[in-house]
Every structure is written in structure tokens, then in C-alpha cells.
Design a protein around this nucleic acid. Structure first.
Lengths: 148, 148
DNA sequence: TATTGTTATACTCTATAACTATA
DNA sequence: TATAGTTATAGAGTATAACAATA
């Protein structure tokens, strides 16, 4: 029985992944609350900061959401004074999205808070197991699943 | 830098967990489609089969969903002829939920299909890494996170 | 015509509140 | 009164379709 798997709910991979992800999101949200953002918004900030100045549509692609969803996300962040939008000078259809000074500060504190949340989630694992977990997840995500 | 973490989206734990979970659910759903159920419904079948005959409310607790959500899930499964409901003889307020013969067959095939989906998800990992991943997730889920 | 951002709308998922039948 | 199941309803979250501005 090299590939032993039973049918208990608690041992199904989908159950373990869902529960772990929910726990991570909960820890993240609580760590970020004092900063005034949630997990989702931190992801947007990271995506904005992670490359060249970007249009809303490019940002939506990076994050894997619809452009209409992106509008609502940016409305919220702009309302908080964390991001700014202004039309691209060469193509005025596009909105270039950038972090404000406050936004850069929020990003910095947000990443630190999220690091702490990750540390808490992994607290029951040895450092080696924690590293291995992260690496295995990265391998799975980067390995395109054959859609047979 | 023993705890090195950068701020790239693709290296955040929450991102890796979300993506992996989504991939697992996708693989599961596709593996289960020919059997006529989805990931969610397989979880219900496993929960039903995993213990004594259960009321809807007990089942909802096991699965971590609201009892009103449970109603809709069971309506669907009953409509497919996979589960049956009948009032408990001692307390006629309760509905005892059981698998039909077809339901037992669906469960058996569903678990096999889901095992295959898990195998596909983990295909890019060594057997040792796959086992370690499963064990680490189990450790995290079973370790109650201190709500400081 | 095509594309970007936006708005209106609809759909899914889920929970809360109210109802019924039983206890 | 309290509980199990049900129904009605509302709230997130997200996508599709239609529209305005620009290319």
C-alpha cells in the first residue's frame, strides 16, 4: 500500500488544502486589519509594486480577476488614498495605476504583517518542513497540469 | 536570513495555497464529472458514510456549513437518487440521511476518481515530498491557531 | 472597428430570519 | 419553549453585456 489513501474527509487533500487556505486567509486578514487592508487588497498592492507601472487591465490579468472586478478593487483602494489612477499620456484609454506614498507605506507594513501571519500558520512545523511545504506548493503551481 | 520571504505575489503562502486548492478542486471536479457529482457532493457522501447514521444538522456541523445550505445540498443529492431522508423513529423532527445503493456505488467510484485527481496534482513531486506535503497540511489543520 | 474603463445586471454561494412540525 | 428542517430573503463576490471615451 504505497499509495494508501482512505476515504475519511479529514485526510482528503482537497479538504486539507481548503482548511489550510482558510486559516491562512484568516490569519492574514487579522494581521492586516490594523493597517486598514485585507488579504485581497495586499495582493493588489504587491501586484502593482511588482513591475512596471501598469494599466488596470494588465493588473487584472496578473491577479487573475475580471477587469470589472478590478474596477471595484481599485475604487476601494483609491478611496483609502492608497493608489492613484491617471490616464496614460500615450494612450488615454488606459489608466496607469500607482501606489501613493501612503500606499507604499501600507505595502511595506502589510508585507511585514503577512510574513508574521505566515510564520504563525507554519508555527507547528519544523523550519525544514515549512520550507519543504512552500517549495512543494510552488512546484505544483508552476507545473502545468495536463488537461488530458 | 533564515526566514527569507520576498514580496512577490507568486511566493506568498496565501497565493500558493489558493492556487493549489483551486487546481485540486478543478482536477477533482473533472475526475468526478463522469460519475455525476462534484467535489462538494463527494465531501457530503464521505461525511454521510463516515460514521453512524446522521441527522442533517449533525452532517452540516461535520462539513462546516449552515443547516440551510445542507438542505439545498441534500435536495440535489436526493434528486439524483444518491441519498435518502427519512424521519428518525424516536424523534420525528430529525431526518436521518443515508446513502442509497446507488449512493454507495457513487461514493466508491468517487473516492477512486478523487484519488486519481490527487495523484495527478502531486505528479510533479517525489513520493516523499508528496507524503510530507500531506502530513504538513494535516499538522497545520490539526494544530489550533492561537487567536492572540 | 477595436480596446479600456465603467456601469448595469445577473448569477452563485452562503448566511440570517421567519415559519412548520415535532418535542 | 426549544429544536430540526424548511423557505424566503438578503448580502457578498464575481462574471457577462452594454455603454462612453479613445484609438
Amino acid at each position: 500500500m504505497s499509495n494508501a489513501q482512505n476515504s475519511e474527509l479529514a485526510s482528503r487533500l482537497i479538504y486539507l488544502l481548503k482548511r489550510t487556505q482558510a486559516q491562512m486567509e484568516n490569519l492574514n486578514d487579522r494581521a492586516l486589519a490594523p493597517i486598514g487592508i485585507n488579504s485581497r487588497e495586499l495582493a493588489v498592492l504587491i501586484a502593482i509594486a511588482g513591475g512596471e507601472p501598469t494599466s488596470q487591465q494588465q493588473l487584472a490579468e496578473r491577479l487573475g480577476v475580471d477587469r470589472t472586478t478590478m474596477v471595484a478593487l481599485l475604487d476601494m483602494l483609491e478611496g483609502k488614498g492608497i493608489v492613484s489612477r491617471h490616464p496614460h499620456s500615450d494612450d488615454r484609454r488606459r489608466n496607469i495605476v500607482e501606489l501613493t506614498d501612503k500606499g507604499n507605506n501600507t505595502l511595506e507594513n502589510g508585507v511585514l504583517a503577512s510574513n508574521q501571519a505566515e510564520h504563525t500558520l507554519l508555527g507547528s512545523l519544523s523550519p525544514e518542513a515549512a520550507t519543504a511545504l512552500r517549495e512543494s506548493l510552488r512546484t505544483i503551481v508552476n507545473h502545468p497540469t495536463r488537461l488530458r
